[in-house]
Design a protein around this nucleic acid. Structure first.
Lengths: 217, 217
DNA sequence: TAGATTGTTAATCGATTAACAATC
DNA sequence: TAGATTGTTAATCGATTAACAATC
């Protein structure tokens, strides 16, 4: 039996790629056709070698002394992140965060095609939020199967998050983007990405705290 | 001259601490007084030694065979993250994401005290969103100084983000929580934490893509 | 006491950074 | 051509995991 080597990209690299994309899209708008990794690294305060390694992951080939072709590089990064194809998605919980995500048109550029929203609250059912209809939560598995939904976005509170995840699993959803502060139990084949806003706030406030304590000591 | 050793916590640890807090708060609600690191690690699918090291950062001392005192541990983590004191904050850009953050009461528990919001759009000025008044953006530096604002939250689009950051710097804000997909230029003493939602989406979609390609190969 | 769990040191693993040849 | 930049290998650094003594 041949050992199957599963390729898995380093997560730190994956997390830097979207930032490259933002820098590159501005460079593209300025009609530059080539860009060097030092140009990118300076804007993001990263090590140029690190940028080169990250870009190499996407399969891009640069020209010595010239740099990387901007348009092709943008395409490669998007393909690498899986943003080159549209994926149908549903969102559960049309509170303020859920509504914000429904309204964030940028996500379409990343292949996120939210085709339905769900909520437990009868007052929300039947609403149309930024062009997306709100259905009762019980309908999720049926609608997910019918529309071949790949992604589920959870923007309910922590207490309901697991039930919502279970409904998504019954609807054969393959990836869950979880904004609820609750670790989810899911089968192995389902991918969960937790997007805790508090993580980012914690990094900020703990750095501020460290600066304060370094100053006084 | 004595060399000043600046303590700086490993960022991966800092990013895990908020998740521990969520697990612990549920354990606390269930009236458990002690918790072992294996209990925590199982829920979050982490290595128990890693959990122990992370918790040790906060200065907690556990009892062999018993575990860590839950309530004290919660307090230590909060203190470590800088969530034990209230910090005044302002938010700029009351679009859907800005509104969602204003409405997210949880942040109060992390010491985030948003006392004013700002926007460029005259139609927004004078509104009151979840108890926070909206002022014209030009007023930011003055209001920031008057109320000793420590934190600024940027929820405007990429094109305006740098101007907003400049106004915050003029208002002597010390930390910026930036949701705009734009690397900010700030003086050394100002801390910036970028919270790109697309980073998290990219991790999810690229993992899905990897699964797909591993399956076909 | 026996044994589970902490605290800590050592070993491993992986990511970042440095060095440098290849290339246009 | 000369020299800037890529691509890649080697060295370093830091984080994770393993091992184990200390302890209640």
């Amino acid at each position: 039996m041949r050992k199957i080597k599963k390729f898995s990209a380093p997560e730190p690299s994956m997390r830097r790629l979207p930032a490259y994309l933002h820098v590159l899209s501005r460079i593209f708008k300025e009609n530059q056709t080539f860009v060097s990794c030092t140009t990118i690294s300076r804007q993001l305060r990263l090590d140029p070698t690190q940028v080169r390694k990250d870009l190499a992951l996407t399969g891009i080939v640069g020209k010595p002394r010239v740099g990387y072709p901007v348009e092709e590089l943008i395409g490669n990064i998007k393909a690498f992140l899986g943003w080159d194809i549209q994926r149908n998605a549903v969102l559960v919980g049309v509170g303020s965060l859920g509504t914000a995500i429904l309204g964030y048109q940028q996500f379409r550029l990343y292949g996120l095609n939210i085709i339905a929203a769900f909520d437990r609250d009868p007052a929300q059912i039947g609403r149309n939020i930024f062009g997306v209809n709100v259905y009762p939560i019980e309908k999720l598995p049926e609608i997910a199967v019918r529309h071949q939904i790949e992604l589920g976005i959870i923007t309910v509170n922590a207490d309901s998050a697991q039930e919502v995840a279970d409904l998504m699993i019954r609807g054969f959803i393959r990836g869950i983007w979880n904004f609820a502060p609750k670790p989810l139990e899911v089968p192995n084949e389902v991918v969960v990405e937790n997007a805790l806003l508090s993580v980012s706030l914690g990094v900020l406030t703990s750095k501020l705290k460290q600066i304060e304590s370094n100053r006084t000591s």
